[in-house]
Amino acid sequence: MSIARTNRMTPYLFLAPAGLVLLFALFYPICYMIYASFLDWNPSQRIGEADFVGLRNYTKLFSDPSFRESMWVTLKFAGVVVTLEMFLGVGLALLLDRNIRGMSLLRTLFILPMMIAPIVVGLMWRYMYHPTVGIFNKTLKSWGFDTIPWLSDGNWAFASVVIADVWQWTPFIFILSLAALQSLPTSAVEASKIDGASGWQQIIYIKLPLMLPVLIVTFLLRLIDSFKVLEVILVMTNGGPGLSTEILSLRINRTASEFRELGEAAAMSNLLLIVLLLLTFAMFIYNKAQDARAARLRAVEEEA
């Protein structure tokens, strides 16, 4: 083998270990899962003993009202949660983007929820939502109001998990928006002041449009994440009452462990994976488009 050829092989040599890990830890399970989704497979069987049923798991899913309910809950949850978090996070960033004494401490406090493990967040909120000893109902009671069935009524339970998620993940959007805001060209904002823009007009016509690329990526990241929530809801409601908070990942978990339908669980996981892949792909396309645009502009600039 010539030296040149060896040199060309070097990068692949260094990539090989990581590639091997990926092959076993990611590619193999995914193939396994895809294969399993075509089987009628019970956990007591070995995979070889399971019957091949073709697309039956998938067709069954689409006619299963519980699955459709679960899908709807997931979409609703992701939509509501991400919308709220975007508004609050960006709003907070706009509010806290100024130099006031103690602001850095305040910013640190704001991002604390994000650092707490989801299981702990779930437990914490479950205790706070407790019908009799939880802080919310206790406070309501001491003020003379009726108590609220936080986790025992379907609608309230959905609202409760939304509140917990918003509490935990708004900081994520907050810090990214704040970073975007602080990297905006100050002179453009100043120019708009001179041009006569009020505080709101500066936000609407200058700051938000300039933050948009970051906001879009943040939005997609958060959306992808919100489809995968499990622990917080598992701990708080375990999907109940009824199916009111049973998001897809919980349903997958239950189908596999409770209903012992590994094939169906695999089919559901595949569907979730496809949704997430589409979102990731959207983000990828968006980034590519941004890069292409930046490259084109650079080219124009160099030409000029």
Binding site: S187, A188, A191, S192, I194, D195, G196, A197
Partner: peptide
């Protein structure tokens, strides 16, 4: 406030609004 002072300003780095075209930049005020 700056807008109440009846002035226009040209900045060192031009401070154009990057997301608006030339016509929009000029007509913003």
């Amino acid at each position: 406030e700056p807008k109440e002072r009846d002035l226009a300003m040209v900045f060192q780095d031009y401070a154009l609004y990057p997301h608006m075209n030339v016509a929009k930049n000029m007509s913003f005020a």
